[in-house]
Amino acid sequence: MVPLNYYIILSAILFTIGALGVLIRRNPLIIFMSIELMLNAANLALIAFSSAFNELDGQIFVFFVIAVAAAEVAVGLALIVQIFKSRHNINVDEINQLKG
């Protein structure tokens, strides 16, 4: 019997770590992974609520989140590859202009 609060706190911690990753890392790939971690934390919270309230809707939502994350990663990685091809550098701090 695990209190729901524990799950939520865990989710919050994971989310914060993800947010930190977005803030302090410069490698866009890691930033991306951090975003995935944040999504994952949100998924955990959703599933926990779904389980606590005995409703399946939370699971459905997580399903959609996973699908959307897949789409996002596909496009995002393609973008990163493309940026790398044109600039040979993917440090986010140096990608601050739109011109290629």
Partner: peptide, 14 residues
Amino acid sequence: LGAPFIAMAQITVY
């Protein structure tokens, strides 16, 4: 938490 399908989907997709 009783979501085996999501768990498997998580592993498969993520």
